[in-house]
Design a protein around this nucleic acid. Structure first.
Lengths: 208, 208
DNA sequence: GTGTATTTTTGCAGTGACTGCAATAATGGT
DNA sequence: ACCATTATTGCAGTCACTGCAAAAATACAC
Protein backbone atom coordinates (compact mmCIF):
# COMPACT_ATOMS: atom_id res chain seq x y z
CA UNK A 1 0.00 0.00 0.00
CA UNK A 2 2.62 2.55 -0.95
CA UNK A 3 -0.10 4.55 -2.60
CA UNK A 4 -1.92 7.00 -0.42
CA UNK A 5 -2.82 8.63 -3.69
CA UNK A 6 -4.00 6.95 -6.84
CA UNK A 7 -1.78 6.89 -9.90
CA UNK A 8 -3.94 9.60 -11.38
CA UNK A 9 -3.65 11.89 -8.37
CA UNK A 10 0.07 11.34 -8.11
CA UNK A 11 0.63 12.23 -11.73
CA UNK A 12 -1.61 15.21 -11.35
CA UNK A 13 0.40 16.47 -8.41
CA UNK A 14 3.61 15.94 -10.34
CA UNK A 15 2.40 17.85 -13.35
CA UNK A 16 1.15 20.66 -11.13
CA UNK A 17 4.51 20.93 -9.44
CA UNK A 18 6.38 20.74 -12.73
CA UNK A 19 4.37 23.58 -14.19
CA UNK A 20 4.72 25.73 -11.10
CA UNK A 21 8.42 25.05 -10.79
CA UNK A 22 9.03 25.83 -14.42
CA UNK A 23 7.01 29.02 -14.25
CA UNK A 24 8.57 30.40 -11.08
CA UNK A 25 12.04 29.17 -12.03
CA UNK A 26 11.92 30.76 -15.46
CA UNK A 27 10.66 33.99 -13.91
CA UNK A 28 13.68 34.14 -11.62
CA UNK A 29 16.25 32.97 -14.15
CA UNK A 30 15.21 34.65 -17.36
CA UNK A 31 12.69 37.22 -16.26
CA UNK A 32 8.93 37.24 -16.08
CA UNK A 33 8.57 38.29 -19.71
CA UNK A 34 10.08 34.97 -20.75
CA UNK A 35 7.38 33.05 -18.92
CA UNK A 36 4.92 32.13 -21.64
CA UNK A 37 2.30 29.45 -21.43
CA UNK A 38 3.84 27.64 -24.37
CA UNK A 39 7.31 27.65 -22.86
CA UNK A 40 6.17 26.55 -19.43
CA UNK A 41 4.03 23.77 -20.83
CA UNK A 42 6.85 22.54 -23.03
CA UNK A 43 9.24 22.68 -20.10
CA UNK A 44 6.88 20.62 -17.98
CA UNK A 45 6.31 18.17 -20.80
CA UNK A 46 2.65 18.79 -21.43
CA UNK A 47 0.69 20.47 -24.16
CA UNK A 48 -0.05 24.18 -23.90
CA UNK A 49 -3.75 23.39 -23.76
CA UNK A 50 -3.21 21.19 -20.73
CA UNK A 51 -1.66 24.08 -18.86
CA UNK A 52 -5.11 25.52 -18.38
CA UNK A 53 -6.33 22.31 -16.80
CA UNK A 54 -4.06 23.20 -13.92
CA UNK A 55 -3.96 26.97 -13.72
CA UNK A 56 -6.48 29.58 -14.70
CA UNK A 57 -3.78 32.03 -15.59
CA UNK A 58 -0.06 32.47 -16.11
CA UNK A 59 0.31 34.34 -12.83
CA UNK A 60 -1.36 31.59 -10.88
CA UNK A 61 1.25 29.19 -12.17
CA UNK A 62 4.12 31.45 -11.22
CA UNK A 63 2.77 31.93 -7.71
CA UNK A 64 1.57 28.36 -7.42
CA UNK A 65 -1.86 29.43 -6.28
CA UNK A 66 -4.45 26.91 -5.31
CA UNK A 67 -8.00 27.25 -4.15
CA UNK A 68 -7.92 28.24 -0.48
CA UNK A 69 -9.94 26.22 2.02
CA UNK A 70 -10.58 26.22 5.74
CA UNK A 71 -9.84 22.99 7.49
CA UNK A 72 -11.20 21.45 10.66
CA UNK A 73 -7.75 21.35 12.21
CA UNK A 74 -7.37 25.09 11.75
CA UNK A 75 -10.60 25.77 13.57
CA UNK A 76 -9.49 23.59 16.45
CA UNK A 77 -7.24 26.22 17.97
CA UNK A 78 -9.82 28.94 17.44
CA UNK A 79 -11.06 30.25 20.78
CA UNK A 80 -13.94 32.72 20.71
CA UNK A 81 -13.48 33.67 24.33
CA UNK A 82 -9.73 34.01 24.24
CA UNK A 83 -7.67 36.51 22.26
CA UNK A 84 -10.03 36.99 19.36
CA UNK A 85 -7.79 39.19 17.24
CA UNK A 86 -4.93 36.74 17.52
CA UNK A 87 -7.21 33.80 16.86
CA UNK A 88 -8.64 35.31 13.71
CA UNK A 89 -5.28 36.48 12.53
CA UNK A 90 -3.75 33.03 12.97
CA UNK A 91 -6.71 31.41 11.28
CA UNK A 92 -6.22 33.67 8.29
CA UNK A 93 -2.55 32.87 8.25
CA UNK A 94 -3.27 29.17 8.31
CA UNK A 95 -5.72 29.44 5.44
CA UNK A 96 -3.29 31.61 3.53
CA UNK A 97 -0.72 28.86 3.69
CA UNK A 98 -3.10 26.49 1.91
CA UNK A 99 -2.95 28.50 -1.28
CA UNK A 100 0.64 27.54 -1.87
CA UNK A 101 2.03 24.17 -2.59
CA UNK A 102 4.28 25.92 -0.07
CA UNK A 103 7.15 23.91 0.97
CA UNK A 104 9.13 26.60 2.75
CA UNK A 105 11.70 26.83 0.00
CA UNK A 106 8.96 27.35 -2.52
CA UNK A 107 7.48 30.11 -0.38
CA UNK A 108 10.79 31.97 -0.46
CA UNK A 109 11.09 31.55 -4.19
CA UNK A 110 7.62 33.05 -4.65
CA UNK A 111 8.41 35.97 -2.37
CA UNK A 112 11.51 36.68 -4.44
CA UNK A 113 9.53 36.66 -7.64
CA UNK A 114 6.93 38.99 -6.18
CA UNK A 115 9.66 41.28 -4.92
CA UNK A 116 11.13 41.50 -8.41
CA UNK A 117 7.76 41.84 -10.08
CA UNK A 118 5.41 43.74 -7.80
CA UNK A 119 2.58 43.45 -10.32
CA UNK A 120 2.17 39.94 -9.01
CA UNK A 121 1.33 41.20 -5.54
CA UNK A 122 -2.08 42.14 -6.87
CA UNK A 123 -2.90 38.57 -7.61
CA UNK A 124 -1.83 37.62 -4.14
CA UNK A 125 -4.06 40.21 -2.53
CA UNK A 126 -6.84 38.97 -4.74
CA UNK A 127 -6.46 35.67 -3.00
CA UNK A 128 -6.33 37.31 0.41
CA UNK A 129 -9.80 38.62 -0.32
CA UNK A 130 -10.98 35.09 -0.99
CA UNK A 131 -9.37 33.99 2.25
CA UNK A 132 -11.13 36.80 4.04
CA UNK A 133 -14.48 35.61 2.76
CA UNK A 134 -13.86 32.05 3.84
CA UNK A 135 -12.64 33.05 7.26
CA UNK A 136 -15.44 35.54 7.71
CA UNK A 137 -18.00 32.79 7.29
CA UNK A 138 -16.22 30.52 9.71
CA UNK A 139 -15.82 33.28 12.27
CA UNK A 140 -19.43 34.40 11.95
CA UNK A 141 -20.57 30.90 12.75
CA UNK A 142 -18.48 30.80 15.89
CA UNK A 143 -19.53 34.26 17.00
CA UNK A 144 -23.20 33.38 16.61
CA UNK A 145 -22.73 30.66 19.20
CA UNK A 146 -20.86 32.86 21.60
CA UNK A 147 -22.76 34.51 24.44
CA UNK A 148 -20.60 37.59 24.22
CA UNK A 149 -20.94 38.24 20.52
CA UNK A 150 -24.25 36.72 19.54
CA UNK A 151 -25.80 40.17 19.68
CA UNK A 152 -23.93 42.79 17.70
CA UNK A 153 -23.54 46.42 18.76
CA UNK A 154 -25.84 49.11 17.34
CA UNK A 155 -27.50 48.34 14.01
CA UNK A 156 -25.04 45.70 12.94
CA UNK A 157 -25.43 42.01 12.28
CA UNK A 158 -23.17 39.26 13.52
CA UNK A 159 -21.91 38.98 9.98
CA UNK A 160 -20.91 42.61 10.10
CA UNK A 161 -18.93 41.98 13.25
CA UNK A 162 -17.23 38.97 11.72
CA UNK A 163 -16.41 40.93 8.60
CA UNK A 164 -14.92 43.79 10.53
CA UNK A 165 -13.00 41.46 12.80
CA UNK A 166 -11.48 39.74 9.80
CA UNK A 167 -10.63 43.03 8.15
CA UNK A 168 -8.87 44.35 11.25
CA UNK A 169 -7.04 41.10 11.91
CA UNK A 170 -6.26 41.03 8.20
CA UNK A 171 -4.36 44.27 8.63
CA UNK A 172 -1.60 42.49 10.50
CA UNK A 173 -1.54 39.77 7.84
CA UNK A 174 -1.15 42.32 5.08
CA UNK A 175 1.48 44.05 7.17
CA UNK A 176 3.40 40.81 7.46
CA UNK A 177 3.11 40.04 3.76
CA UNK A 178 4.34 43.46 2.76
CA UNK A 179 7.25 43.25 5.17
CA UNK A 180 8.39 39.79 4.19
CA UNK A 181 8.10 40.40 0.47
CA UNK A 182 9.94 43.69 0.50
CA UNK A 183 12.88 42.05 2.25
CA UNK A 184 12.66 38.52 0.87
CA UNK A 185 15.44 37.00 2.96
CA UNK A 186 13.95 38.25 6.18
CA UNK A 187 12.43 36.48 9.13
CA UNK A 188 9.56 34.07 8.64
CA UNK A 189 6.09 35.27 7.91
CA UNK A 190 4.57 34.09 11.15
CA UNK A 191 7.16 36.06 13.09
CA UNK A 192 6.32 39.13 11.07
CA UNK A 193 2.67 38.42 11.75
CA UNK A 194 3.20 38.42 15.50
CA UNK A 195 5.29 41.55 15.29
CA UNK A 196 2.51 43.22 13.34
CA UNK A 197 -0.07 42.09 15.87
CA UNK A 198 2.02 43.54 18.68
CA UNK A 199 2.45 46.83 16.85
CA UNK A 200 -1.26 47.04 16.15
CA UNK A 201 -2.04 46.54 19.82
CA UNK A 202 0.37 49.24 20.88
CA UNK A 203 -1.03 51.72 18.44
CA UNK A 204 -4.64 50.94 19.25
CA UNK A 205 -4.13 51.12 23.02
CA UNK A 206 -2.76 54.58 22.48
CA UNK A 207 -5.70 55.58 20.31
CA UNK A 208 -8.76 54.27 22.11
CA UNK B 1 -12.81 83.32 -21.21
CA UNK B 2 -15.15 80.34 -21.18
CA UNK B 3 -12.13 78.10 -21.29
CA UNK B 4 -10.60 77.09 -18.02
CA UNK B 5 -9.16 74.26 -20.00
CA UNK B 6 -7.47 74.39 -23.36
CA UNK B 7 -9.20 72.92 -26.38
CA UNK B 8 -6.90 69.97 -26.13
CA UNK B 9 -7.69 69.28 -22.50
CA UNK B 10 -11.40 69.69 -23.03
CA UNK B 11 -11.47 67.23 -25.90
CA UNK B 12 -9.38 64.86 -23.89
CA UNK B 13 -11.82 64.97 -21.01
CA UNK B 14 -14.71 64.45 -23.40
CA UNK B 15 -13.12 61.43 -25.01
CA UNK B 16 -12.31 59.99 -21.61
CA UNK B 17 -15.89 60.38 -20.48
CA UNK B 18 -17.25 59.00 -23.74
CA UNK B 19 -15.13 55.88 -23.44
CA UNK B 20 -16.00 55.35 -19.80
CA UNK B 21 -19.70 55.95 -20.38
CA UNK B 22 -19.79 53.61 -23.30
CA UNK B 23 -17.93 50.90 -21.42
CA UNK B 24 -19.98 51.04 -18.22
CA UNK B 25 -23.22 51.58 -20.10
CA UNK B 26 -22.67 48.62 -22.38
CA UNK B 27 -21.75 46.49 -19.38
CA UNK B 28 -25.08 47.28 -17.72
CA UNK B 29 -27.22 47.10 -20.85
CA UNK B 30 -25.78 44.19 -22.76
CA UNK B 31 -23.52 42.46 -20.29
CA UNK B 32 -19.82 42.67 -19.57
CA UNK B 33 -18.97 40.11 -22.23
CA UNK B 34 -20.19 42.54 -24.86
CA UNK B 35 -17.73 45.18 -23.74
CA UNK B 36 -14.87 44.87 -26.19
CA UNK B 37 -12.21 47.45 -26.85
CA UNK B 38 -13.25 47.70 -30.48
CA UNK B 39 -16.91 48.23 -29.66
CA UNK B 40 -16.24 50.80 -26.97
CA UNK B 41 -13.83 52.73 -29.14
CA UNK B 42 -16.25 52.73 -32.06
CA UNK B 43 -19.06 53.84 -29.77
CA UNK B 44 -16.96 56.72 -28.49
CA UNK B 45 -15.91 57.67 -31.99
CA UNK B 46 -12.21 56.96 -31.72
CA UNK B 47 -9.93 54.30 -33.08
CA UNK B 48 -9.36 51.15 -31.07
CA UNK B 49 -5.73 52.04 -30.75
CA UNK B 50 -6.62 55.35 -29.15
CA UNK B 51 -8.52 53.54 -26.42
CA UNK B 52 -5.22 52.61 -24.85
CA UNK B 53 -4.14 56.22 -24.74
CA UNK B 54 -6.84 56.66 -22.14
CA UNK B 55 -7.08 53.37 -20.28
CA UNK B 56 -4.53 50.70 -19.59
CA UNK B 57 -7.16 48.00 -19.66
CA UNK B 58 -10.74 47.26 -20.46
CA UNK B 59 -11.67 47.04 -16.79
CA UNK B 60 -10.22 50.45 -16.07
CA UNK B 61 -12.53 51.91 -18.68
CA UNK B 62 -15.59 50.21 -17.23
CA UNK B 63 -14.77 51.43 -13.73
CA UNK B 64 -13.50 54.79 -14.90
CA UNK B 65 -10.32 54.46 -12.94
CA UNK B 66 -7.79 57.26 -12.87
CA UNK B 67 -4.45 57.59 -11.21
CA UNK B 68 -5.06 58.37 -7.55
CA UNK B 69 -3.35 61.37 -6.00
CA UNK B 70 -3.22 63.08 -2.65
CA UNK B 71 -4.09 66.74 -2.67
CA UNK B 72 -3.14 69.60 -0.36
CA UNK B 73 -6.77 70.26 0.45
CA UNK B 74 -7.22 66.72 1.70
CA UNK B 75 -4.29 67.04 4.06
CA UNK B 76 -5.72 70.26 5.45
CA UNK B 77 -8.25 68.53 7.68
CA UNK B 78 -5.72 65.96 8.80
CA UNK B 79 -5.00 66.36 12.49
CA UNK B 80 -2.23 64.24 13.95
CA UNK B 81 -3.24 65.02 17.52
CA UNK B 82 -6.96 64.53 17.06
CA UNK B 83 -8.79 61.35 16.17
CA UNK B 84 -6.06 59.66 14.17
CA UNK B 85 -8.06 56.67 12.99
CA UNK B 86 -10.84 58.88 11.72
CA UNK B 87 -8.39 61.28 10.12
CA UNK B 88 -6.59 58.54 8.24
CA UNK B 89 -9.80 56.85 7.26
CA UNK B 90 -11.24 60.07 5.86
CA UNK B 91 -8.04 60.86 4.06
CA UNK B 92 -8.17 57.46 2.38
CA UNK B 93 -11.77 58.04 1.47
CA UNK B 94 -10.94 61.38 -0.06
CA UNK B 95 -8.12 59.92 -2.12
CA UNK B 96 -10.32 57.03 -3.15
CA UNK B 97 -12.79 59.46 -4.63
CA UNK B 98 -10.11 60.84 -6.93
CA UNK B 99 -9.91 57.60 -8.83
CA UNK B 100 -13.36 58.07 -10.28
CA UNK B 101 -14.57 60.71 -12.64
CA UNK B 102 -17.19 60.24 -9.91
CA UNK B 103 -20.10 62.38 -10.35
CA UNK B 104 -22.38 60.70 -7.83
CA UNK B 105 -24.54 59.16 -10.51
CA UNK B 106 -21.48 57.66 -12.11
CA UNK B 107 -20.42 56.22 -8.78
CA UNK B 108 -23.72 54.41 -8.46
CA UNK B 109 -23.47 53.07 -11.97
CA UNK B 110 -20.03 51.65 -11.20
CA UNK B 111 -21.24 50.06 -8.00
CA UNK B 112 -24.02 48.37 -9.93
CA UNK B 113 -21.61 47.01 -12.47
CA UNK B 114 -19.32 45.69 -9.76
CA UNK B 115 -22.29 44.12 -8.00
CA UNK B 116 -23.27 42.29 -11.17
CA UNK B 117 -19.68 41.36 -12.02
CA UNK B 118 -17.73 40.78 -8.80
CA UNK B 119 -14.58 39.98 -10.76
CA UNK B 120 -14.24 43.73 -11.14
CA UNK B 121 -13.94 44.20 -7.40
CA UNK B 122 -10.40 42.89 -7.65
CA UNK B 123 -9.39 45.79 -9.82
CA UNK B 124 -10.91 48.15 -7.34
CA UNK B 125 -9.01 46.64 -4.44
CA UNK B 126 -5.90 46.85 -6.56
CA UNK B 127 -6.42 50.56 -6.58
CA UNK B 128 -7.08 50.64 -2.87
CA UNK B 129 -3.59 49.25 -2.42
CA UNK B 130 -2.22 52.14 -4.45
CA UNK B 131 -4.21 54.53 -2.32
CA UNK B 132 -2.82 52.90 0.78
CA UNK B 133 0.71 53.49 -0.42
CA UNK B 134 0.08 57.14 -1.20
CA UNK B 135 -1.64 57.75 2.10
CA UNK B 136 0.98 55.83 4.02
CA UNK B 137 3.67 58.17 2.75
CA UNK B 138 1.64 61.24 3.60
CA UNK B 139 0.80 59.94 7.06
CA UNK B 140 4.37 58.92 7.79
CA UNK B 141 5.51 62.44 7.05
CA UNK B 142 3.00 63.89 9.48
CA UNK B 143 3.78 61.35 12.17
CA UNK B 144 7.47 62.08 11.96
CA UNK B 145 6.77 65.68 12.92
CA UNK B 146 4.49 64.76 15.77
CA UNK B 147 5.91 64.66 19.30
CA UNK B 148 3.70 61.73 20.20
CA UNK B 149 4.53 59.46 17.29
CA UNK B 150 7.99 60.50 16.20
CA UNK B 151 9.39 57.54 18.13
CA UNK B 152 7.73 54.24 17.31
CA UNK B 153 7.07 51.48 19.82
CA UNK B 154 9.43 48.49 20.14
CA UNK B 155 11.59 47.71 17.10
CA UNK B 156 9.43 49.52 14.60
CA UNK B 157 10.02 52.53 12.40
CA UNK B 158 7.70 55.46 11.93
CA UNK B 159 6.96 54.06 8.51
CA UNK B 160 5.81 50.85 10.12
CA UNK B 161 3.44 52.77 12.34
CA UNK B 162 2.07 54.68 9.38
CA UNK B 163 1.63 51.49 7.41
CA UNK B 164 -0.23 49.77 10.21
CA UNK B 165 -2.36 52.81 10.86
CA UNK B 166 -3.39 52.93 7.23
CA UNK B 167 -4.10 49.22 7.15
CA UNK B 168 -6.33 49.39 10.22
CA UNK B 169 -8.12 52.51 9.07
CA UNK B 170 -8.37 50.86 5.67
CA UNK B 171 -10.42 48.10 7.24
CA UNK B 172 -13.35 50.44 7.69
CA UNK B 173 -12.95 51.66 4.12
CA UNK B 174 -13.02 48.13 2.79
CA UNK B 175 -15.97 47.45 5.04
CA UNK B 176 -17.81 50.40 3.56
CA UNK B 177 -16.97 49.41 0.00
CA UNK B 178 -18.16 45.87 0.50
CA UNK B 179 -21.38 47.05 2.10
CA UNK B 180 -22.24 49.64 -0.49
CA UNK B 181 -21.47 47.43 -3.45
CA UNK B 182 -23.38 44.44 -2.19
CA UNK B 183 -26.50 46.60 -1.80
CA UNK B 184 -25.96 49.11 -4.61
CA UNK B 185 -28.96 51.32 -3.83
CA UNK B 186 -28.00 51.74 -0.21
CA UNK B 187 -26.83 54.72 1.77
CA UNK B 188 -23.86 56.75 0.66
CA UNK B 189 -20.35 55.45 1.05
CA UNK B 190 -19.26 58.03 3.56
CA UNK B 191 -22.16 57.06 5.81
CA UNK B 192 -21.15 53.43 5.55
CA UNK B 193 -17.62 54.51 6.35
CA UNK B 194 -18.66 56.19 9.57
CA UNK B 195 -20.80 53.24 10.50
CA UNK B 196 -17.83 50.96 9.94
CA UNK B 197 -15.60 53.20 12.01
CA UNK B 198 -18.10 53.11 14.84
CA UNK B 199 -18.37 49.35 14.68
CA UNK B 200 -14.63 48.97 14.69
CA UNK B 201 -14.33 51.10 17.79
CA UNK B 202 -16.98 49.11 19.60
CA UNK B 203 -15.32 45.84 18.79
CA UNK B 204 -11.85 47.02 19.65
CA UNK B 205 -12.89 48.56 22.96
CA UNK B 206 -14.29 45.20 23.87
CA UNK B 207 -11.12 43.42 22.85
CA UNK B 208 -8.30 45.51 24.24
C1' DG C 1 -2.42 83.93 -41.24
C1' DT C 2 2.06 81.29 -41.71
C1' DG C 3 5.22 78.28 -40.09
C1' DT C 4 7.00 75.35 -36.58
C1' DA C 5 7.13 72.47 -32.47
C1' DT C 6 4.48 69.39 -29.71
C1' DT C 7 0.97 66.28 -28.73
C1' DT C 8 -2.56 63.07 -30.16
C1' DT C 9 -4.58 59.95 -33.20
C1' DT C 10 -4.40 56.29 -36.13
C1' DG C 11 -3.26 52.06 -38.90
C1' DC C 12 -0.71 48.04 -39.12
C1' DA C 13 1.23 44.08 -37.93
C1' DG C 14 2.28 41.17 -34.40
C1' DT C 15 2.40 38.47 -29.79
C1' DG C 16 0.34 35.85 -26.55
C1' DA C 17 -3.34 34.69 -23.19
C1' DC C 18 -7.32 32.22 -23.01
C1' DT C 19 -11.68 29.43 -24.70
C1' DG C 20 -14.84 25.86 -26.71
C1' DC C 21 -15.06 21.78 -29.01
C1' DA C 22 -14.42 17.25 -30.35
C1' DA C 23 -11.16 13.47 -30.85
C1' DT C 24 -7.92 10.60 -28.46
C1' DA C 25 -5.53 8.53 -24.77
C1' DA C 26 -4.97 7.17 -20.03
C1' DT C 27 -6.79 5.37 -15.81
C1' DG C 28 -10.11 3.05 -12.52
C1' DG C 29 -13.26 -0.41 -11.57
C1' DT C 30 -15.46 -4.92 -12.82
C1' DA D 1 -11.02 -7.80 -21.38
C1' DC D 2 -14.54 -4.34 -21.19
C1' DC D 3 -16.71 -0.16 -20.05
C1' DA D 4 -17.14 4.37 -17.65
C1' DT D 5 -14.74 8.26 -16.29
C1' DT D 6 -11.43 11.60 -16.57
C1' DA D 7 -7.28 13.80 -18.54
C1' DT D 8 -4.74 15.29 -22.58
C1' DT D 9 -4.38 17.16 -26.88
C1' DG D 10 -4.91 19.76 -31.32
C1' DC D 11 -7.31 23.12 -33.73
C1' DA D 12 -9.33 27.14 -34.75
C1' DG D 13 -10.67 31.22 -33.15
C1' DT D 14 -11.37 35.70 -30.25
C1' DC D 15 -9.62 39.40 -28.07
C1' DA D 16 -6.57 42.24 -25.09
C1' DC D 17 -2.63 44.65 -25.54
C1' DT D 18 2.00 46.51 -27.68
C1' DG D 19 5.60 48.99 -30.56
C1' DC D 20 6.32 51.66 -34.31
C1' DA D 21 6.01 55.16 -37.62
C1' DA D 22 3.00 58.07 -40.40
C1' DA D 23 -0.55 61.47 -40.36
C1' DA D 24 -3.57 64.72 -38.20
C1' DA D 25 -4.69 68.06 -34.70
C1' DT D 26 -3.44 71.57 -31.63
C1' DA D 27 -0.50 75.13 -29.46
C1' DC D 28 2.51 78.81 -29.90
C1' DA D 29 5.54 82.50 -31.83
C1' DC D 30 5.87 85.78 -35.18
Amino acid sequence: MSQLLSLRDRKRAETWAALHLSASGTALDKGLECVTVDAVAADAGVSPRTFFNYFASKEDAVLGLQEPFVDESMLAEFDVDGDLLASVSHLMHAVTRTIHGSADEDGNRCREVICRYPQLMHRRFQYIVKVEQLVTDAVAERLAQSSRWATAPAGNTVDDVAKMLVLVAGASLRFAIQKTTSHPTRESQSEALDQGMELMRNILKELL
